[in-house]
Design a protein around this nucleic acid. Structure first.
Lengths: 142, 142
DNA sequence: GTATATTCAGACAAATTACTCTTATTAATC
DNA sequence: GATTAATAAGAGTAATTTGTCTGAATATAC
């Protein structure tokens, strides 16, 4: 089971970090990324379609085509990616599933979860693709 | 979609809080809880079987039977419940799904997630059923 | 002992998520 | 223009999670 993001979203994060390591002008094929990261190729295709629709990626059909980031990797943060693929339920829904939980009538977990949830959102806004691509290139990283 | 716990786990939390509001000697039927919380009755039955197997609940068959907590509500914390139903993947697996991510060879998200994950675990250990049952009984709560 | 109300348990069905396959479209190269 | 390698898009399949149904076992009360 995944921790908090869907499998699609995990794949999106991995693939975009991979893309960010490449030069910004190069078009990279889905096949190359899927092979390299062990992600099902056509599944990644769907995910990249979503990211293209949200203008995070741009695509080019035909021979020598592929995908590349539509803006500098330092301008794309994790929250952009997660919100595109998974929506914002992780930051809005009740963590215990109480149907009527809200700030006005909180469930017994609401306030305990509030700070944690805000910490997660803050972190997702903070970390951008450039940082992560730089980190992953360091020795000892994965 | 649920936030971080499975639907089964959300239901378990809700149902156990409900149970904790009752006297400790009373046997409560699944039907009463399911009706009250709008949870599918037989689905809750399965969930309560797991909780019985892990000695969080005890059950009594037959007329006037039902379930009750196997220890004081102050001795059962959220982590006990979550670990029983969902396992510990939420606190051990890589948040971005990188296959080889570990402390020794971390992914670029590993260290950013570490504190948040530890915060979640700490909170789950901290909050017990008695506290939550008390809170939910207050006016304005849900 | 019989009727009844409950858990226990397993098979089944529906919904969601993950993944695959196929065909169409596009653009570069020859 | 023909060939080729790529995305786009939709239909279909598989796996997992969620939810339903049914019958057996059990214990209480009459």
């Amino acid at each position: 089971m995944s921790v908090i993001f869907s499998k699609q979203c995990e794949y999106a994060i991995q693939a975009l970090i991979y893309l960010s390591k490449k030069t910004e002008t190069e078009w990279i094929s889905i096949k190359e990324i899927a092979d390299h990261l062990n992600i099902p190729q056509h599944f990644l295709g769907k995910i990249f379609q979503m990211l293209s629709n949200k203008r995070i990626l741009k695509s080019k059909k035909g021979l020598q085509g592929g995908f590349c980031l539509s803006k500098p990797s330092s301008d794309i943060n994790l929250k952009d990616i997660v919100d595109t693929i998974d929506g914002d339920a992780y930051s809005t829904a009740c963590v215990a599933g109480f149907p009527n939980c809200s700030n006005d009538s909180p469930c017994p977990l609401h306030n305990s979860w509030k700070d944690l949830r805000e910490g997660i959102v803050k972190m997702l806004k903070m970390r951008n693709l450039k940082q992560m691509a730089d980190e992953i290139s360091k020795p000892g990283y994965n």
